[in-house]
Amino acid sequence: MEKKALRKADLVTSMILMGISITGFIMSLQLVIRTISRGKEWFESSGLFPMIVTFFLGLCAYSLFLTARRAGARLDFITKENMLFMTKTREFKVACIVIGLLAAYIMLLMLPGRLYAVVTFVYLLTSMLVFQKKTKKSVIHSIIIAAVATAVLAFGFGKLAMIPLP
């Protein structure tokens, strides 16, 4: 990411981090109050150290916010047009597809029944095919590689090496 874009991202991240640190600080404070209300000492509380860490996280996030502002980053880049443009970039689309496929793979593995080999083969084949030019050769290569990889994972790992499969 180029520096200018990075600082804009830093600006947004710093605000999210400030939100996390404030929420975390309040939750930690509640833990400290709960400990004291039980008649224990404040320094025994499980919220004590998180409270310190969230405080410093807030400070660091604020410092990042200032650094980004000084570098010229403003929130005015968050417009409908820019968001639409971002969703149309190749990187965004590819990242969404890869993450989506992985999410679907994990979800399908959690279904009841011993579907590991089928689901893995489908996942591998889809991932291999989705980003390459679909010629007869590439499809055959993908099917063979996905099948061999599935066999190694399901039989080699699962049965021979006794590694528990999802």
Partner: peptide, 14 residues
């Protein structure tokens, strides 16, 4: 990469 990385993802899951 297109052949290698999906296998890495499957290995990560195991």
């Amino acid at each position: 990469t297109v052949y290698l990385m999906p296998i890495v993802a499957a290995l990560s899951v195991i």
